[in-house]
């Protein structure tokens, strides 16, 4: 979808800015908000760029930097922490060769942490894009990553 189409879909009112930014980011190809896109958006919505960037940067799920094709969000809430999410983080860092916030050289993965995913019963858990994975072990994590690499 183009920027104009996205605005059209939600309506050109300030109250729709967050939903527009979500779509903008989803359509960006690299899960991020491009500066020039926000500049364009500011003209269409008649808002200042500072206002748009200021709003976007408030929320942790919007990224102003390019991210990988898959965004891995490891839950860092206490139920997951108690069940060893730190070890899962180490396993992910080891497997991907990046630390939190980093993107792999091949542009496939960005590693992030997230607040509670609400699937505490299967802690430790992570979400890759919109799919939730629970009861993680180092082995399971490597298997999931392998699968995504193969599918790429």
């Amino acid at each position: 979808m183009s920027i104009a189409e996205i605005v059209e879909k939600h309506g050109n009112d300030r109250e729709n800015l967050l939903q527009i930014l979500h779509d903008l980011q989803d359509c960006s190809g690299d899960h991020s908000l491009h500066h020039d896109a926000m500049v364009q958006l500011s003209r269409i919505m008649n808002l200042t760029v500072a206002d748009i960037v200021g709003t976007a940067s408030f929320y942790s799920m919007f990224s102003l930097r390019p991210r990988g094709r898959h965004v891995i969000r490891l839950c860092e809430s206490p139920p997951c922490y108690i069940k060893g999410s730190e070890n899962i983080l180490l396993a992910l860092e080891k497997r991907l060769g990046v630390s939190v916030g980093g993107t792999t050289g091949d542009g496939l993965f960005t590693l992030e942490t997230t607040s509670c995913l609400g699937v505490c019963g299967v802690a430790p858990a992570m979400m890759i894009d919109e799919t939730v994975y629970g009861n993680l072990t180092e082995e399971k994590v490597n298997g999931i990553i392998d699968g995504l690499v193969k599918a790429a």
């Binding site: 109250e15 800015l17 979500h22 408030f58 929320y59 607040s115």
Partner: peptide, 26 residues
Amino acid sequence: IRMGAGAFVCGEETALMHSIEGKRGE
């Protein structure tokens, strides 16, 4: 439906309403 974008403070009612209005959720 209004979707948040990752800000814990938006659970606070006045912040939440700012966020629905498309603003920073303060």
